[in-house]
Amino acid sequence: MQKTALVPYAHLPRAHHDHHVLTSTVDVFGTAHWLLAERAPLPGGDVQPFDALVVSVHPDGNVELTELSAVRARWPHLDRLPDGGFVVAASRARRHEDANQVQVFDMLGRETSSFSVGDAIEHLLVDEAGHIWVGHFDENPAGIRRWSTTGQLTWTSDGARIPGLFDCYALNVSGTTAWACPYTDFPLVEIRPERPDRPVRVWANRVRGAKAVAVHGERVAFYGGYREERDRLAHGELTETSVEPTAVALLTLPDGPAPGRRWAVGRGSRIYVLVEPYTAWGVFDLSG
């Protein structure tokens, strides 16, 4: 099978390798961010608020440091807001009404608001307008929702007629558009809440189990799958109603081997992949 190698994208500066990586992401503008703590959180019990450091590596290579005060998430999601602030969210909520699940920080690292978006966060991605997109896994039937930075629900998949939406396996947010590929039917879904005539479009899709998706024009690529297909990169083209498969490859690290344990983020035509020990992002660009 043909192999496609990731291209090196961003590296955590070596000066910070002695910190524990809580999570990492690449934002809608292409900047990579690492959320670091002095040590890993202790298992069990409540999390005591702790100070954390965000290391941001911009596409031009410049490095920016932001200290966040009193972070409360044990297993956090992170993304940057267009105004320079950050969103940190706990993937699990002990109570649905937990007002501290999502923390919003300003560009100086001070908390400005907190609210709940519900348990079982699989994906949290911020768009260019500052909307917070959340995709849930199957322990929360909420599906896909969009929030403001003050906790106002601005869009929900309830009533959107997305077939088989029990788990948001893949979510891609670019500009102000979201793309998703949810379990169990794995359709490709385009969400544009500001488009009044047709906010949601759905294409039938035969690729199962993808954990990330990239879209460029009429072309699409799905990354991941079950068992021996976990490194699969499946290409397709959009017709009026379906995704028609065109090619399949294996996505590898820049130096050749399979990625192993990884995190993946979809942004427009790009899929970013971060492998253990989570210090270097690689990228696959469908537009290239």
Results as ranks from 00 to 15, higher is better:
Gly175Gln: 04
Tyr169Asp: 03
Arg72Gly: 10
Gln101His: 07
Pro49Arg: 08
Glu228Gly: 10
Val207Met: 11
Val275Trp: 07
His235Leu: 13
Arg110Cys: 11
Asp285Ile: 06
Ala32Trp: 00
Leu35Phe: 01
His58Val: 06
Cys181Asp: 00
Thr23Ser: 09
Gly84Lys: 05
Pro59Gln: 02
Gly175Met: 05
Ala10Arg: 05
Leu251Arg: 03
Leu35Tyr: 00
Val248Asp: 09
Glu38Trp: 11
Leu68Cys: 03
Gly109Asn: 03
Asp167Asn: 07
Ala120Gln: 09
Thr177Phe: 04
Ala40Val: 13
His216Thr: 11
Val215Gln: 03
His216Arg: 10
Arg80Glu: 06
Arg198Leu: 15
Arg145Val: 15
Val54Ser: 00
Gly143His: 01
Gly118Pro: 07
Thr184Tyr: 08
Gly288Ala: 15
Leu22Met: 13
His216Leu: 10
Asp285Met: 07
Ala258Trp: 06
His77Phe: 14
Val213Thr: 06
Asp255Val: 11
Ile144His: 01
Trp155His: 04
Glu240Ser: 14
Trp203Ala: 07
Phe166Gln: 12
Asp197Asn: 13
Ile162Met: 05
Ser269Asn: 09
Tyr169Asn: 09
Val26His: 00
Arg110Gln: 14
Phe105Ile: 04
Gly61Trp: 10
Ala221Asp: 01
Asp51Ile: 08
Arg192Glu: 11
Trp155Phe: 15
Leu238Val: 10
Leu251Thr: 02
Trp147Leu: 02
Trp34Phe: 09
Gly130Cys: 07
Gly209Gln: 04
Ala214Leu: 08
Val28Leu: 07
Pro13Cys: 07
Arg208Phe: 12
Val213Met: 04
Gly30Leu: 06
Val57Lys: 01
Pro41Trp: 03
Tyr9Arg: 03
Thr156Glu: 10
Glu38Gln: 11
Asp231Leu: 06
Pro193Met: 11
Arg219Thr: 13
Val57Asp: 00
Gly84His: 07
Leu233Ser: 03
Gly236Cys: 06
Arg219Pro: 04
Trp263Asn: 12
Val283Lys: 02
Thr241Leu: 10
Gly84Glu: 04
Val28Lys: 05
Val55Tyr: 00
Thr156Tyr: 10
Thr184Asp: 14
Gly268Cys: 04
Phe115Arg: 00
His216Trp: 13
Gly282Leu: 02
Phe29Gly: 09
Leu153Asn: 09
Ala10Glu: 01
Glu139Ser: 13
Gly236Glu: 00
Gly288Pro: 08
Val213Cys: 05
Phe86Asp: 01
Trp155Gly: 03
Val134Gly: 00
Ala247Asp: 15
Gln103Met: 13
Val283His: 01
Pro41Val: 07
Pro13Leu: 09
Pro277Gln: 12
Thr177Lys: 04
Ala160Asn: 03
Gly268Gln: 03
Ile191Tyr: 08
Val243His: 00
Leu68Trp: 02
Thr241His: 13
Tyr9Gly: 01
Ala99Thr: 12
Leu42Lys: 12
Glu190Asn: 12
Trp75Phe: 14
Gly164Ser: 12
